[in-house]
Design a protein around this nucleic acid. Structure first.
Lengths: 202, 202
DNA sequence: TAACTGATATGACAAATGTCATAAGAATAA
DNA sequence: TTATTCTTATGACATTTGTCATATCAGTTA
């Protein structure tokens, strides 16, 4: 019998998954949460064989929960289950040595199958995810430019950005000018729209 | 026996709901789709008793599907199932005379319960939704201001907006100035951030 | 009716934004 | 070693943006 813990903040999916996995003869749902903090404390207490973790949850993200569980060296298989095919998320998941990374854009059969495979020692990364990351138009912005973009995405003015990143006003304007040119735009808002569409920023 | 059709673009939830509702003795899932267009053509063909419609789907939104079904005067109970507690969506749903509006932030039990109630002739609006709409800080922008805001959210410049809405450049600037003052901000980006947080725009 | 709000407009002004040329040091790649 | 890229910076310039005062006209509300 395999014990499973589910952390998913969307109630509908959370309860639906619990019900479905319970139907499998060899699975037993031992608990579930809708936020990361409860998920972490309960998985450490209940020690299930498998934890299914959503990424975007209140208090602690599923990725942070996974990291903690690895730091605690708990013997647990981790499945990250998310809507987002974001490179950043995927990289963090790989670093946390999760056993599977699955998109919610897969049917439940796939989840069951995945759980069985990771119990077998395999590591499963959603193939749609991997290909979508590879085909994603890659970010042409330098780290510094990205940093500046995140600043102005909050609505900060050039001067505020300059102060917050310890650069001169002119340098910040140069970076922005470069961002605009790389995105083929002529204003911060347009640049932000492009960056969001391409998942360069949230 | 009640026949049910499910339209939900997130595969995981779609298949999970199908499986769960199938478990109920008196429910029979007769079809499901992950986009609005198939949902509309199949519900008109299969004539299920109940259609569960997600809002945000490719090609046609669940709300549009609901509208069409009402125009066609098909005898069908409609449940809108969505993540979003947006006033606009809710109003559109009420106008389309849907039988229930449920948030994905409710457990599956609630869905089953809701389906049974609407089959009984009741109309069910998620109580969390209704209260969240009532408490939502209401939009202080006039229709015209909102229109202008949508324009600049696309990154348009004052001049472009002026041309697209047939106003003078100065008038557009006045509107924007008024928007900034109402949102307590000093730049378009800040104003957009506030508006998004409060769901005044998408 | 009087007061208010909304839509529209102009003109003037200060501040912010975006563009360019130019430069220099550091790091990295060829 | 040379070429390229990244980070940082300045100065100058044109344009855009945001603010204010002011005004007219049409509705709506008190």
């Amino acid at each position: 019998m395999t014990t499973i813990y589910i952390a998913e903040d969307q109630e509908m999916l959370n309860s639906a998954l619990s019900a479905i996995l319970e139907l499998e003869n060899d699975f037993n749902i031992v608990g579930n949460a809708t936020d990361g903090k409860s998920a972490l404390s309960q998985t450490t207490a209940l020690k299930p064989d498998v934890a299914i973790l959503d990424i975007e949850m209140p208090y602690l993200s599923g990725l942070e929960v996974a990291q903690q569980l690895r730091i605690l060296k708990q013997d647990i298989k981790i499945v990250i289950l998310t809507t987002f095919a974001r490179k950043k998320y995927f990289e963090a998941a790989v670093n946390a040595q999760v056993d599977a990374y699955l998109l919610k854009d897969s049917p439940t059969d796939k989840l069951v199958e995945t759980i069985n495979k990771i119990l077998d020692g395999q590591t499963i990364y959603d193939s749609n995810l991997v290909s979508s990351i590879l085909t994603a138009s890659k970010n042409p912005l330098t780290p510094q430019e990205l940093k500046i973009m995140k600043e102005f995405s909050q609505g900060k003015t050039t001067q505020e950005i300059a102060e917050s990143v310890f650069l001169s006003n002119g340098t910040v304007r140069n970076y922005i000018s470069s961002i605009l040119s790389k995105t083929g735009t002529h204003s911060r808002i347009e640049a932000l729209n492009i960056a969001k569409k391409n998942n360069w920023i949230d």
